[in-house]
Computed example of a mutant assay.
Amino acid sequence: MADYLTPLSTDALRAEGIPDPWTFGQADRVRFYELDALGHVNNTAYLRWFETVRVGWFAAYGISFYGPEDPTFVLRAITCDYHAPMFLNESYVVTARCVSFRKTSFKKVYGVWSDGALKVEGSAVIVMTDKAGTTKMPLSDTMRAVLRDRDGAVAEG
């Protein structure tokens, strides 16, 4: 497995048993503090993993939100479907990709994979706003092109 949190190449994803169309993912392992009283990964940890891969995805795709003139991205909705439990020290890969976009928002999907098996999947709707987070802003043509070209996202509405 690759260095933790370093984006994996497409070849590395395939070697981990992760199929097309996934092209972005980061490897990590389950830590003790991510467990619940039953000894498996607590459901909140998966949402944190989605956030971690989302930030890595933004960086890898050249989408900035740290600068004073950059927009803010607000998480409007998130889902998480659990297929199998995960345990301490288990290695995994979290994948992320954008599947669609609208005027001011886009939809991402996530997968958590271990030993080639999909353990958890999820989705999120993310809205672009001004820095204050009060006014929706349209996605730029450049950003739409990145979402379309890198992830195969399609325009909706």
Rank of each mutant, 00 (worst) to 15 (best):
M1T: 09
M1E: 06
T6M: 06
P7W: 06
L8Q: 11
L8S: 06
L8D: 05
S9C: 04
S9G: 05
T10K: 11
A12D: 15
L13G: 04
R14Q: 08
A15R: 13
A15D: 15
E16S: 09
E16F: 00
G17Q: 06
G17K: 04
I18M: 03
P19V: 06
D20V: 07
T23N: 13
F24Q: 09
F24I: 09
F24S: 11
G25L: 03
G25E: 02
A27G: 11
V30C: 01
V30I: 12
V30F: 03
E34Y: 07
H40I: 06
H40Q: 07
N43Q: 14
L47D: 01
L47A: 12
R48D: 07
W49F: 08
F50W: 03
F50E: 07
E51G: 10
T52F: 08
T52W: 05
T52V: 12
V53R: 03
G56D: 11
G56N: 14
W57V: 04
F58L: 11
F58T: 01
Y61D: 12
G67I: 01
P68N: 10
E69P: 00
L75R: 11
L75D: 10
A77K: 14
I78C: 12
I78A: 15
T79F: 01
C80G: 13
C80V: 12
C80K: 06
D81R: 14
D81Q: 14
Y82V: 00
P85Q: 12
M86N: 01
L88Y: 15
L88E: 07
N89F: 14
S91L: 10
S91I: 03
Y92D: 00
V93N: 01
A96N: 11
R97D: 01
C98T: 11
V99C: 08
V99A: 02
S100M: 07
F101R: 09
R102M: 07
K103A: 13
K103R: 15
S105W: 05
K108E: 15
V109F: 02
V109H: 07
G111W: 00
V112Q: 01
W113C: 00
W113K: 00
G116W: 03
K119H: 10
K119M: 13
V120P: 06
E121T: 13
G122F: 04
G122T: 03
A124Y: 05
V127C: 09
M128Y: 03
M128G: 03
K131P: 04
G133A: 07
T135C: 08
K136M: 13
L139W: 05
L139I: 09
S140G: 09
D141N: 14
D141T: 13
D141Q: 14
M143Y: 08
M143N: 09
M143W: 14
R144Q: 15
A145D: 15
L147H: 11
L147M: 15
R148T: 15
R148A: 14
R148P: 01
D149K: 10
D149M: 10
R150E: 13
R150W: 05
A153S: 11
E156M: 15
E156A: 12
E156W: 10
G157K: 14
